[in-house]
Simulated scan of single mutants.
Amino acid sequence: MANQQPNSGNPRVDIEYRRKKSKEEMRHQVTSFSMMIFLTLIAFFAVGFQDYSAWFIVPFILLLAVIQVIFQLFYFMHMSHKGHEAPSLFLFSGVLVGFVTILAFSTIIWW
């Protein structure tokens, strides 16, 4: 219901509107995919480059992974569209609960 396109009553206008939206969506997906490939290549080069220590490489790769997860959520899983506020709330609430749980267990083990 929330993703219905406006219906003008003119089939030609509606088809052109859908084509324009589909073209724009495909452009976003191709751009996002190429950015993810680029980030993956950066991660491979960072691991392959011998001058960096593990103290730099591990957080750097985790940062690239978080960026790729954001790309996948917002472009491939369409979380940026209208009507996806409730799933976004539940998803990010779950991430927050998971982070707090990992943090709590890590502090219990370390101290």
Rank of each mutant, 00 (worst) to 15 (best):
R12S: 09
M26A: 08
Q50D: 13
F76I: 07
W55S: 00
S93I: 08
P6D: 08
H84D: 04
D51A: 14
Q72D: 08
V100I: 12
E16S: 13
T101H: 11
M36S: 11
N3P: 03
R12T: 10
L62E: 05
H84K: 14
F45M: 12
A86H: 06
F92C: 07
V58K: 00
S88D: 05
F33K: 02
L91G: 03
E16W: 05
F74R: 13
V30I: 15
V97M: 10
V100K: 09
F45A: 14
Q68K: 15
H78M: 04
A65C: 08
I102Q: 09
F38T: 15
I67W: 10
F49V: 05
I67E: 15
S80D: 11
I61N: 00
F60K: 00
P59C: 01
G94F: 09
V69P: 04
I109G: 07
M36F: 03
E85A: 08
G94V: 08
Q72F: 10
A43M: 13
L103G: 06
G98L: 09
R18Y: 01
M26E: 12
N7P: 02
Y75R: 14
M79P: 00
M35H: 11
P59K: 00
L39W: 02
T40H: 09
S93P: 01
A104S: 14
Y75V: 15
H84C: 07
G94Y: 04
T101R: 11
